[in-house]
């Protein structure tokens, strides 16, 4: 009898400590969009179905997105993006594994705006590219709104842009990130 009481006690203690330490935040509707503008053509695509988990204790951050979920204005451009450039049938996912530097100095229990460097590896089209850029986190009522912007080039990911369309695509393609994380519960 004593044994069971003790085990239950220990178990419930472990559970409570787990619950208390709300150190993981998640979003499943993360928004990322890419933008390119040249005098000839403006191209923009949005993805609203991005999953990301942020560990505010360690600063670990992980993002997963499907390239097929990027929606373009023009159907033909979307098909070309998937078939000829990112080859989403072969490489369906984009992954970003990163660390938020000096996350420990942010008090996530208080509302406020914080800027921190984020450094990580972006995996796409079979290539890994290191991205380092400052991101903004707005903490409001237990939610974290994280935004950032950076640029990538097609060459970094070994994506060949033929000469005929070169003047239609910006060399540095802009990437914007807008995630609203909520506490992770499970």
């Amino acid at each position: 009898m004593k044994k069971y009481v003790l085990v239950t006690l220990v178990l419930s203690l472990a559970l409570i400590s787990n619950l208390k330490a709300q150190d993981k935040f998640i979003t499943k509707t993360g928004h990322v969009w890419i933008h390119s503008k040249t005098p000839v053509k403006e191209i923009e695509a949005h993805n609203h179905q991005i999953t990301s988990i942020l560990d505010v204790k360690t600063g670990d951050m992980i993002v997963s997105a499907f390239l097929r979920d990027f929606k373009f204005d023009n159907q033909l451009v979307e098909e070309h993006f998937n078939e000829n450039y990112v080859e989403s049938a072969k490489y369906p996912k984009v992954k970003f594994k990163a660390k938020v530097i000096d996350i420990a100095s942010i008090d996530f229990s208080k509302n406020g705006t914080y800027k921190r460097m984020v450094e990580g590896i972006l995996e796409m089209h079979g290539k890994s590219v290191t991205i380092k850029k400052e991101g903004t986190a707005v903490v409001k009522d237990g939610k974290i709104k994280a935004t950032a912007a950076f640029t990538v080039t097609a060459e970094q990911f070994a994506i060949v842009i033929p000469a005929i369309v070169k003047d239609k695509i910006q060399k540095d393609i802009e990437v914007y990130v807008d995630f609203t994380y909520t506490p992770y519960t499970k």
């Binding site: 003790l6 085990v7 220990v10 472990a14 787990n18 560990d55």
Partner: peptide, 24 residues
């Protein structure tokens, strides 16, 4: 029992974000 419970709980804490993401 105590050791196992403690161990399993620490394992939960340090669960790989990768696996968590896959589950989600």
């Amino acid at each position: 029992t105590v050791v196992i419970v403690l161990l399993s709980s620490t394992k939960l804490m340090s669960q790989d974000l990768d696996k968590l993401l896959d589950a989600e």
